[in-house]
Design a protein around this nucleic acid. Structure first.
Lengths: 203, 203
DNA sequence: AGAATTTAATGCGAAACGGTACAAAATATG
DNA sequence: CATATTTTGTACCGTTTCGCATTAAATTCT
């Protein structure tokens, strides 16, 4: 299924690796300020090859967002390992997020979606769709863990899993914004800890 | 102090109003995608006039961010009216934010800073500085109210005003992102209510 | 009234932009 | 080997971009 030999000249590049390089360009510059020359240089692909493989700039951007979203969901699933207590799960979610957010040469790059898709979302429906779906999928996964926590007695019966999940996500959204605003790792980690305390209870 | 007649030809436009129009363009399109032609058309100013009055595009953008920040701090101060209970204060902060965020022709425009400055913050130090200062000033104002709440017994002695303030801001950051992602007013209001409950206690 | 100063309007110009036409190269098929 | 098919690389096209140079207009100062 993978090596069905195609008819013409074979590709001289790894599409997945190229997508990663393109993603980094978008991550630093944002969609609008990332030129095809920037993307071409970073991926070592000529503009026509780029176009042939991924479509136009928006198509390429949407591909990187989708891949990023998938990666994020995988990290989330790992962090939410059900054999651990809820507190640890949340702490791992935030630690995983910060690990991604706190890269960058000049300043931390935060979250690709919150940092770069949010701007474009207003005027580009397809970007808005991916962003909305990413946020709600993330909420949904945490919500499932919250429901389990109520069943297990980690949270009181009166707890509202959906709302707690959305607030848990809210802390992460704030970490994403603050990372890009230049906040230190220490500050962000303190916010993450306090968020865990607030949502899971101080105990 | 206002009508000291200046030497040359007087301005034929209101700089403050023009700044508001320019802000709206940035709000919808973001900094990078907003062209000087867009800004010129929206403000009814020729490019040279725009340039003469505000400097280059980044200068103009920074001016709009600064004005927006000031407006936001005023709205915040009103919402935090100390004669009201903390719960009401927070609810008013979120209601005021949503009132601003839920405008827009195609999709809600969210927060100008979180929606458009976050992208540019990585590669433009001056933008990052305004964004960072805006966030921390906002945190600081809420923190003052939290301290008062502890003194008044609205919050337990054990409460950490700084962290509660940052988490209260976090909910607002999330509202800003989600508005731009297309979430409905009802959803956002529900998140705001839950945020108030979580931070002030359910009672 | 004339000089000085500031703003307004037209328009230019060099560079960067996204996207593509076209020919050469590399593979599979018949 | 010839043909079909796909990718690669160069070069280019028309548009848009930002910023400014220049001239006309409006006001104050002398």
């Amino acid at each position: 299924m993978k090596d069905e030999k195609k008819r013409g000249r074979p590709r001289a590049f790894d599409a997945k690796a190229a997508l990663g390089k393109a993603r980094d360009v978008f991550w630093d510059r944002g969609f609008a300020a990332a030129s095809l020359d920037n993307l071409s240089a970073a991926t070592n692909l000529n503009r026509p090859s780029l176009y042939g493989a991924f479509g136009d700039k928006e198509d390429l951007y949407l591909d990187t967002l989708e891949a990023y979203r998938q990666d994020g969901m995988n990290v989330l699933a790992e962090a939410l390992d059900q054999s651990l207590p809820l507190r640890d799960n949340l702490a791992r979610v935030y630690a995983g997020a910060l690990n991604i957010y706190l890269h960058g040469e000049t300043a931390a790059r935060g979250c690709l979606l919150i940092g770069t898709a949010t701007v474009e979302a207003v005027e580009r429906e397809r970007v808005r769709e991916v962003l909305g779906r990413s946020l709600s999928d993330f909420d949904g996964e945490i919500e499932k863990r919250m429901r389990l926590a109520v069943e297990r007695g980690e949270l009181p019966e009166s707890a509202d899993p959906q709302m707690l999940a959305r607030l848990a996500s809210a802390v992460m959204h704030s970490l994403a914004v603050r990372a890009r605003a230049g906040d230190s790792r220490e500050t962000l980690e303190a916010i993450a800890r306090s968020g865990v305390d607030l949502i899971c209870g101080r105990s």
